[in-house]
Amino acid sequence: MEWREEAIVLGVRRHGETSVIAEVMTRERGRHLGLVRGGRSRKQQPVLQPGNSVAIHWRARLDEHMGAFLIEPLELRAARLMENGIGLNGVQLVAAHLRLLAERDPHARLYDGLAVIVDHLDEPDKAAELMLRFEIALLEELGFGLDLERCAATGRRDDLVYVSPKSGRAVSREAGEPWRDKLLPLPAFLIESDTACDPRSLVDGFRMTGYFLSRHVFEPRGLAEPLSRAGFLAAIEKIRARASA
Score class of each variant (00 low, 15 high):
Glu141His: 07
Leu121Tyr: 10
Asp119Ser: 15
Pro124Ser: 05
Asp147Ile: 07
Cys151Thr: 10
Met131Asn: 02
Val118Asp: 11
Ala128Tyr: 04
Asp159Ala: 13
Pro165Ile: 12
Ala152Arg: 11
Glu129Arg: 15
Gly155Val: 02
Ser172Leu: 02
Ile136Tyr: 02
Val116Lys: 13
Glu149Asp: 13
Glu135His: 13
Asp119Val: 00
Asp122Trp: 10
Pro165Ala: 07
Phe134Gln: 12
Pro178Phe: 12
Glu177Leu: 15
Leu130Asp: 07
Thr154Tyr: 02
Leu130Pro: 00
Ala127Phe: 10
Lys126Val: 14
Leu160Gly: 07
Glu129Pro: 02
Gly176Gln: 08
Ala137Arg: 09
Ala137Trp: 06
Gly143Glu: 11
Gly176Tyr: 04
Leu142Val: 10
Arg157Ser: 14
Val118Ala: 11
Arg133Ile: 03
Pro165Leu: 08
Glu135Asn: 10
Ser167Tyr: 00
Arg133Glu: 06
Leu114Ser: 01
Ala152Asp: 11
Asp147Gly: 01
Pro165Thr: 07
Glu141Phe: 08
Val161Tyr: 01
Glu174Phe: 09
Ile117Leu: 14
Gly168Pro: 08
Ala128Leu: 08
Asp147Phe: 05
Lys166Thr: 09
Leu121Ile: 11
Pro165His: 12
Asp158Ile: 09
Val161Thr: 13
Arg156His: 10
Ala128Cys: 11
Ala170Glu: 08
Val161Gln: 06
Leu148Gln: 08
